[in-house]
Design a protein around this nucleic acid. Structure first.
Lengths: 243, 243
DNA sequence: AACAATACCGTACGTCGTACGGAGAATCTA
DNA sequence: TAGATTCTCCGTACGACGTACGGTATTGTT
């Protein structure tokens, strides 16, 4: 009861989005600091180094395992030193997201209509495979409008530019592809995650729980589910393919 | 270093999925307990009461704000009492998920092909609106196969049964709709969440950040994004509609 | 009356994000 | 050169979290 809580309760998101104002400042490296050329000791750290370390950690162990302490440890600094560069974990995650967006390379401007869309889809797919934790960050509405996210948006739009779509339609179609790929990526990433966590392949899993399920599951009550589920389960031994 | 860690490190999911075996047991209320009619004191709690309380909390404040302590408090019991009925928070969430699935009612068997699919979509949409936290629970691959989830799967399948699709196609089309609706719901839920958190409508938000963005954003560098973004931003003052 | 099984839960441990304030380094001013 | 100023770095501490452990109270069986 000293002197915090000056702001609002500020219900925290599970997905971990930061305060828009502070995130924007960080994303565009708008740490004014323009004046006062530099008085104190030289910084030994930087936002980029922190973000890179955090991304490595999240890539390897998932967002759940990302903690300020672990990031600091990896950088060989005290935990609280991070807060000199980053206002909080939530904003750090926003910057991580934008930075990861920047790792997409190439252009999708050539080829036919269909080919371009597929190129977009595949690029996003690869992005999510490389950084599965991005799927945990809720970033569809009011995305963190960092430089890389905008560059990506522009890249995607250019791919469908000059096809004869209105601006609004262009936005829609890019959004559609994005949503769809995200769904597919989510399934795949979850499957991979389950496999890592349980140490069982999908096939082994269904094999193990088929009997257990049969014990409690009244096939007569849900004939359609039983029939289709069996067929689908059998068919999905094969790897999942986007599209 | 006493005597835990007998299992494996068991990397925890952000989305909070539980141990399949224990989740299954809970979902089907397979707490054998069949023998030993009842020796101790009468249970004053039940899995259902716990799950209901947890769902209410998650509905109101989101998954991030769901804690065992708060659930217990709401039920007027000690925190650790919950663990008599539920092995851990992760499994509790699995059961919450299945229970929420059970709140969908109605059948989609009438009307044309198109109408049925839309009914499915709209039902899922409503479900996510009522329980936004479900989007946080990763449940696409290896879903928690509880009674309600299976019933829902069966209901959806029946809606597309007898249209002339193979079993595999039926599974695919149901999955497609599901993924798509989830994407749409995610966007809408995030938007609503942002609005609640920041106290700004989407329109206000764009209005506030347009200038700030203009300061750092070089429109010349991304002409397409600038143009389309402006148009799309303007158009989206209207409410979002699924489909 | 003695015993066994069960529900309840207080305490404690290790984790987390981060507020606070102090130590020391680099630069600017006098 | 001396002092003031403005930084970086970070040790400590607080209140949350999930949950392991073991104790106590309550019920049934014998």
């Amino acid at each position: 009861m000293s002197a915090a809580m000056t702001k609002k309760p500020e219900e925290k998101h599970y997905g971990g989005r930061g305060d828009p104002v502070r995130s924007m400042a960080l994303l565009w490296r708008d740490t004014d600091a323009g004046r006062a050329p530099a008085r104190g000791p030289r910084p030994g750290l930087s936002v980029d180094r922190i973000v890179d370390a955090a991304i490595e950690l999240a890539d390897a162990d998932g967002l759940a395992a990302l903690s300020m302490r672990r990031v600091a440890e990896r950088l060989g600094v005290g935990t609280m030193s991070l807060y000199t560069y980053v206002p909080s974990k939530a904003e750090l995650i926003d910057v991580m997201y934008d930075t990861a967006c920047g790792s997409v390379e190439g252009d999708f401007g050539s080829g036919g209509w269909r080919v371009r869309l597929e190129a977009i889809a595949r690029a996003n797919w690869d992005l999510y495979r490389r950084h599965p934790w991005m799927l945990q960050v809720m970033a569809m509405a009011r995305p963190p409008l960092g430089p890389n996210a905008i560059a990506g948006y522009d890249r995607d739009l250019r791919a469908v530019d000059g096809i004869g779509l209105t601006d609004l339609e262009m936005d829609s179609v890019v959004g559609m592809v994005s949503v769809y790929v995200q769904g597919a990526a989510r399934t795949a990433v979850e499957a991979a995650g389950s496999e890592r966590d349980t140490g069982m392949t999908d096939a082994e899993w269904w094999e193990a729980y088929g009997p257990l399920l049969a014990k409690v599951f009244d096939a007569a009550k849900y004939p359609v589910a039983a029939r289709v589920g069996a067929v689908a389960g059998e068919a999905y031994q094969a790897a999942y393919d986007p599209e």
